[in-house]
């Protein structure tokens, strides 16, 4: 009787250890409240994780749902989480109509933008120039490119390696505020900078 119980406990522990070795998945809380979910599929069996710390363990019988915790994740995934790169960030700088000069407002925020970029150990920067719909398409394509190049030159001047910057122009094709042709719109005269 006793032997049977010991055997049963050993079997349960054995299964547990087995499950742990096979692996597990845990959904983490979303910092900005976005919808988040991961589906875990083994053969025909499927578990959907859509709550913070909802987990699934892989067992011989397929994925088994369970509730994990911050403590458990920190213990099992500490080194992996510590190696997570810095989150990508984006910034927008605005320009004077028809020119590749920063607006006065953008001149004031530019130091902060470059300081944020300087915090990345190996920054990979994408610079995309845009215009409003005043002027012809060829003029705006060229102007968008010039605006991107202005930002690129400023980044290089402040120490970002040229090979880590990609600068492109999109002309007036991707407005923030859609307008008719010929309309001046300050919010569309911009350069978007993504650093990752």
């Amino acid at each position: 009787m006793r032997a049977a119980r010991v055997l049963a406990i050993t079997a349960v522990l054995g299964l547990g250890a087995c499950a742990y070795n096979r692996g597990s998945v845990v959904l983490l809380p979303e910092s900005d409240g976005r919808e988040t979910a991961v589906t875990v599929t083994t053969g025909e069996q499927k578990v959907v994780l859509d709550k913070p710390y909802a987990g699934a363990q892989q067992t011989a019988f397929g994925p088994r749902a369970y509730q994990s915790s911050l403590q458990e994740v920190a213990a099992a995934f500490g080194p992996a989480l510590a190696a997570q790169p810095a989150r990508p960030q984006s910034f927008t700088l605005y320009f004077v109509e028809g020119k590749d000069e920063f607006t006065d407002e953008s001149k004031q925020v530019i130091d902060g933008v470059f300081a944020a970029i300087a915090k990345y150990p190996v920054p990979d920067v994408v610079v995309v120039g845009h215009t409003d719909r005043v002027g012809s398409d060829p003029f705006n394509d060229n102007l968008a490119r010039q605006r991107a190049d202005t930002v690129r030159a400023e980044l290089i001047r402040r120490g970002v390696a040229p090979e880590n910057i990609v600068a492109v122009g999109r002309g007036s094709r991707e407005p923030i505020i859609p307008t008719a042709a010929g309309v001046a719109e300050p919010r569309n005269r911009r350069v978007e900078i993504v650093v990752r």
Binding site: Y20, N21, R22, G23, S24, V25, V26, L27, L28, P29, E30, S31, R34, E35, T36, A37, V38, T39, V40, T41, T42, L49, Q58, P63, V73, A76, F77, A80, L81
Partner: peptide
């Protein structure tokens, strides 16, 4: 993927281990 399992990612943050 892990051996035997496929994770479909709808977003956004999770951890996964594989024996």
């Amino acid at each position: 993927r892990t051996p035997g399992t496929i994770l479909g990612v709808r977003g956004t943050e999770f951890v996964v281990s594989a024996g």
